[in-house]
Design a binder for these strands. Sequence first.
DNA 1: ATCTCTTTCTTGAATCATTCATGTTTATTA
DNA 2: TAATAAACATGAATGATTCAAGAAAGAGAT
Lengths: 143, 143
Amino acid sequence: MTASQQPTTAEELRGAGLRVTAARVALLEAVRKGDHLGVEALASGVRERVGHVSLQAVYEGLHALTAAGLIRRIEPPGSPALFEGRVGDNHHHIVCRSCGAVADVDCAVGAAPCLTASDDHGFSIDEAEVIYWGLCRNCSSVS
Amino acid sequence: MTASQQPTTAEELRGAGLRVTAARVALLEAVRKGDHLGVEALASGVRERVGHVSLQAVYEGLHALTAAGLIRRIEPPGSPALFEGRVGDNHHHIVCRSCGAVADVDCAVGAAPCLTASDDHGFSIDEAEVIYWGLCRNCSSVS
DNA sequence: ATCTCTTTCTTGAATCATTCATGTTTATTA
DNA sequence: TAATAAACATGAATGATTCAAGAAAGAGAT
């Protein structure tokens, strides 16, 4: 068996210095398949694939995957933490004020948008995170 | 006594449809005097002015003042809620990754910045909130 | 000034997300 | 296959916030 061109999930974990366990493979796949899911939803997804996994193992796995840069954690105000598989690009999020739905938004103004604050107060800024607030299609039609 | 040109704190509360109580006057002043303070710090500030006030009264007062638009609530990821007195303008925040310090940033690109997402996914967007991440002067000098 | 009504406040408990602690299991590598 | 460090399980703890029910106190009417 030669190494495939596209690394498997297991190879990605090992390449990030993490051990390959069924729980973590399933967790990474659940995050990637999901669309900004929370911890409970991810735990359900993992359990569908590999049987019982404790909630704490899910929390630890999410920390490890986040630290390794394989997934990204976002925390919209008023919501528990959500996780997504899209990493490395600089993208932002729209959050529905009514139902909490989250969608991705590519940066509108280039690769490192908004990184220029008008007055940085002596801070050295390395990232600008934008959250757009509004209503999703469903919620605005109900209005 | 004629009405002053600059409304008093009490008049502002009444004008917003809220009852004028010592606790809420002190709370509004504490928020305005403070610089992005959390609930516990605000409770301390209120108690310095008017004696014992329960934490729940502080929470309720903060909700009421926020709903009335007299103060603004922000919730940087990883931090409990913070409150500020600067409202009505569209400004953003810098958060120190190391110590959590928060500073205000005027919008870099005009009155309603970044409100144009590249793809709104059918959302109707009414606000863009920007959080700049970095290190404050103190934390970056310690490096 | 007093009465009434509604808002605000208090006390105490409950909830939710997340973390901590300890012991056990399991994946890796030698 | 044995040693060891990472990952997992179970159970308890923490911190921020909210809920519930009754007591106190502003605001406007009498």
